[in-house]
Nucleic acid binder design. Structure first.
Length: 574
DNA sequence: GCCGTTTTCGGCCCGACTGTTTTCAGTCG
């Protein structure tokens, strides 16, 4: 079950989409959209708020507060359900295709009777879009490309959603059965950016009560298979969750086996085989005598193989076993190492939380420093001005004394234009403590042009961090095409850090790129890109990516003490 | 539908880009 705030957010977003598709008042749709965002990013649990408290959330008025109360009380909102009957669910799915918005979706539905993504693809192949006004060859191409992008993400879900579901299920199972050991394994534990299904492990002598509790959890929609050792269910959101029950004495071997990856397991089994041992989910055995040599903990299994414990985020057969054998595993950066966040927004631009709310939430995380980096003016919708920025800076300086242990940095997120230039003249940029520069437009330039603009941004003496360097959105927008080796070289040469953006649908840079960039001696910043207080904890996913890229603490500038960080932020030539 | 008043209506994020047009609609950030 999702958090109530997220559930309500999804409901209001759906209504906003439905209003747009049916050609309703665009401002009304935007009002719902805005309220959805505000509730999704609201710090307090909305299910505990009464109508009056709901109305204190910006963007929530009488009507929306009533609908939310109604929904939380009864699970139904007649007004929304009524609109729902007018638009098949598949039509709304069309909006998830990039370049397809509400107008085109409705045209497709009304003129061609298209009511699902599959039907749309079929209609394109049958050439049925040709006759529609406003649809041409390029539109067809864009639709097919968009669908392709979505299908590459496939049925996989984002790491954040998988982690939340896995943690909730572990907690619910533990509470329901009183079992001692329950954990999630698989790609969620390895922190891959998307997850196909969730693997849960339980140590218990008697599996029946655990299986019973599992199939009765509220998030279980249907049971796929049910056995003594393994049960699989599909959740209300269509995700498969596998539960394996192991004898307690085999916990470590089971955890090791089900965490994978498959390639890592092959590598460890090969080592076992060479040593006359046999490794399975039940333990590490002597191949000849069948005697069990290790099984209770992962550490013990690895140790008996002659290896140190290998962190799950490294278990991808990317050389971790060889490194472990040489005793050269990296000491990975952890979430606790982070001393601050260098890319965050407030409601001065497109954030939801106010400056003080963000600052207080950052201080509560124990940060030693915190940068506020609202959007610069070339992202026109944000209507940023020098005056607003200077006023914010004044406010940031005032607030700097608010939390004794945390210093505030005033920064901005600049826009890298097609030529690699950024907003504002150098004299104005001089006034910032930190500048992130990101690509927000011109995603389709060719490789040479993208490479050039990124390198030019690195060479700008004011740019400290390249934000979300590939500009991809998982399942939605392909990464830009650039010669990243050349970009990494430029970063290392100019003292520009690359961001590991932790926003769950960005996860940018991605792990392989981090691994590669590290070889060039690049430094990184693990940032939340938070637009709300609830986004600050997303850095855990960025840390996962950093670990998958083999980064240690020293590679990440926001683990450094402030004095060292400040030195880095004063780039050469500035 | 929300908000903030010059309190009960009138404005609400607005400019760029794309692909379709032949002067602009739709989508995006």
């Amino acid at each position: 079950m999702a958090r109530p705030n997220e559930e309500v957010e999804a409901l209001l977003r759906e209504y906003a989409d439905l209003i747009e598709i049916t050609g309703g008042d665009a401002f009304k749709a935007r009002a719902y959209e805005k309220a959805a965002r505000a509730i999704g990013g609201h710090g307090a649990d909305v299910s505990r708020l009464d109508a009056a408290a709901l109305r204190e959330i910006p963007g929530v008025g009488k009507s929306i507060a009533e609908k939310v109360t109604e929904y939380l009380g009864t699970g139904h909102v007649p007004a929304i359900e009524e609109t729902r009957t007018a638009v098949p669910a598949g039509v709304r799915d069309l909006l998830t295709i990039p370049t397809l918005g509400p107008r085109k979706a409705m045209t497709l539905h009304q003129e061609l009777g298209v009511s699902s993504v599959d039907e749309l693809v079929a209609a394109v192949h049958e050439g049925r879009l040709r006759d529609l006004k406003g649809f041409g060859e390029k539109t067809e191409e864009n639709i097919l490309h968009g669908v392709d992008l979505m299908q590459q993400a496939g049925d996989r879900i984002l790491l954040s959603a998988a982690t939340e579901l896995a943690e909730e299920t572990v907690a619910a199972l533990t509470e329901a059965t009183g079992i001692e050991r329950c954990a999630y394994a698989g790609s969620t534990r390895r922190m891959r950016e998307t997850i196909g299904d969730i693997d849960l492990l339980v140590a218990a002598e008697d599996s029946a009560p655990v299986m019973d509790a599992f199939v009765r959890l509220p998030q279980t929609a249907e049971t796929v298979v049910r056995g003594r050792k393994k049960t699989s269910v599909r959740t209300t959101r269509g995700l498969q969750v596998d539960l394996r029950v192991l004898p307690p004495e085999a916990w470590g071997a089971g955890l090791q086996y089900f965490t994978g990856s498959q390639a890592h397991n092959i590598a460890t089994r090969t080592i076992a085989g060479r040593a006359g041992l046999k490794l399975s989910e039940y333990g590490l055995f002597d191949a000849e005598s069948g005697e069990r040599l290790a099984a209770a903990t992962e550490e013990e299994v690895y140790e008996r193989l002659g290896l140190p414990w290998i962190p799950p985020t490294l278990r991808e057969d990317r050389g971790e076993v060889a490194a472990a054998l040489r005793g050269e595993l990296p000491e990975l950066v952890t979430e606790d190492d982070l001393r601050g966040d260098l890319h965050t927004h407030t409601d001065l631009t497109d954030g939801i939380s106010s400056l003080t709310e963000m600052v207080d939430a950052a201080a509560a995380r124990g940060y030693a420093y915190y940068a506020v980096t609202d959007h610069a003016p070339n992202l026109y919708m944000q209507r940023m001005t020098e005056e607003k920025m200077l006023a914010q800076r004044e406010r940031v300086r005032e607030l700097d004394g608010r939390h004794r242990r945390m210093r505030l940095l005033h920064g901005t997120e600049l826009n890298i234009d097609a030529d690699g230039a950024v907003d504002w003249p150098g004299e104005f940029l001089d006034g910032f403590d930190v500048c992130v520069a990101s690509i927000h437009s011109h995603f389709r330039l060719d490789r040479a042009a993208q490479t050039r603009r990124l390198i030019r941004a690195c060479e700008n003496p004011h740019v400290n961090v390249i934000g979300h360097p590939s500009a991809r959105k998982i399942g939605h927008r392909a990464p830009i095409d650039a010669d990243y080796d050349a970009v990494f070289e430029a970063c290392a040469r100019t003292g520009t850090a690359l961001e590991i953006n932790s926003h769950p649908d960005r996860m940018d840079l991605r792990d392989e790129q981090v691994l590669r960039a590290r070889e060039f001696g690049v430094k990184f910043a693990i940032d939340s890109d938070a637009h709300s207080v609830t986004h600050l904890p997303h850095v855990r996913y960025g840390v996962g990516t950093a670990q998958r890229g083999w980064l240690g603490k020293d590679d990440v500038i926001n683990t450094w003490p402030l004095t060292r960080l400040r030195r880095f932020l004063r780039k050469r030539g500035r």
